[in-house]
Amino acid sequence: MYEPASPGWLLVALCAATGAYCLVRMRSPVEEQRRTAGAEALMGFGMAAMAVPAAVVAPPRWAWLAYVTVFGAAALRGLWAARTSAHQLHHLMGAVAMVYMAAVMTAAPAHHEHGHAGAGAGVPALTGVLLLYFAGYVLRSGARLLPVTVGGGGPGGAEPGEWGARTTVRWGDRPELSEACRLSMGIAMLAMLVTL
């Protein structure tokens, strides 16, 4: 027997853990990695705070307005950065989704619980577009995590003489962990949009 708030707490834990790993990635010597990790850490911790079950803590209206302000600024930054990096478009979409969810919760009557503000009204067009985008992003990110063999004799396509040589990669610079974090945040965003 589980409490109704249990999935919400799992979502909080997932997003907080992802945000914490993104903070580790901010120590990377690669500038682009640090910049991307900072945006993803903000998204992870923001999603964790937004996912706290309303039965436990019902945020006041000003908290939702603060989300709109913070993620509105992140969306503007993402829009500016998207000129030079295609990955920044995803950060822009994430920030827009956060602004949208916070705006919906700001406008929701106080007697509606988190996740039930739009019950019975159908799926608004913007929610549908965001759901489609994040579903596609999750599928793409998941596919990028699948192992690919490109020939050769060793694991992952390495030549037999190469697999004995080990290279040390810092935790913050591991591409598969970064991709797994992006995948988990995409899944979390889908879960949050579905309950909107």
Rank of each mutant, 00 (worst) to 15 (best):
G8T: 09
L23H: 01
C22I: 06
L42I: 10
L196Y: 15
A95L: 11
Y137A: 03
G46L: 11
R35E: 06
A37D: 09
W171I: 08
E176W: 13
A20G: 01
M98I: 00
V148H: 15
L139H: 02
L196G: 14
H114K: 00
P7M: 01
M192H: 13
A73M: 04
R34P: 08
A135T: 00
L145N: 09
T36Y: 13
V169H: 14
H91R: 00
V99F: 10
P109F: 05
A16E: 02
L79N: 11
G142M: 05
L11T: 04
M185G: 12
P124C: 00
A125G: 12
T106K: 06
R140I: 01
A107D: 07
G72L: 03
R27G: 14
V12S: 12
G157D: 10
Y137N: 01
E32R: 12
T195P: 13
W64G: 08
G38E: 07
G128E: 00
R174W: 13
V104L: 13
T168W: 15
A74E: 06
P53A: 02
M47R: 08
V96G: 10
V68Q: 07
A82P: 07
F134M: 04
G136L: 00
E159R: 11
T84Q: 03
M105G: 09
M185F: 13
A125E: 11
Y21P: 06
A5P: 12
V148R: 14
G94S: 09
P53V: 03
S6G: 09
L132P: 03
T167A: 08
A5W: 15
R140L: 03
R83K: 12
R61M: 08
A20M: 01
A110W: 11
M101H: 11
A165H: 13
H90G: 15
V56D: 06
V12C: 11
S6K: 10
R83V: 05
M26Y: 07
T69I: 12
H91A: 03
V148F: 15
R182Q: 14
R61Q: 03
L146P: 08
H87M: 10
G122A: 08
P60A: 03
V104N: 06
H90F: 15
E162M: 11
G164N: 02
M101V: 07
M47I: 11
G157Y: 14
L92A: 11
G164A: 02
L130K: 00
A16V: 02
M47C: 13
T18P: 02
A39F: 15
A75W: 08
L193V: 05
Q33R: 04
G94E: 02
P160T: 08
C22F: 11
S28L: 10
L190E: 07
R182G: 15
A13H: 10
Y100E: 06
V70E: 08
V96S: 07
G172R: 04
P155D: 05
E40P: 01
L132S: 05
R27E: 07
V70D: 10
G72P: 09
V56Y: 13
F134E: 02
G151Y: 12
R61F: 07
S184I: 12
Q33P: 08
E159Y: 15
E179P: 13
A97R: 05
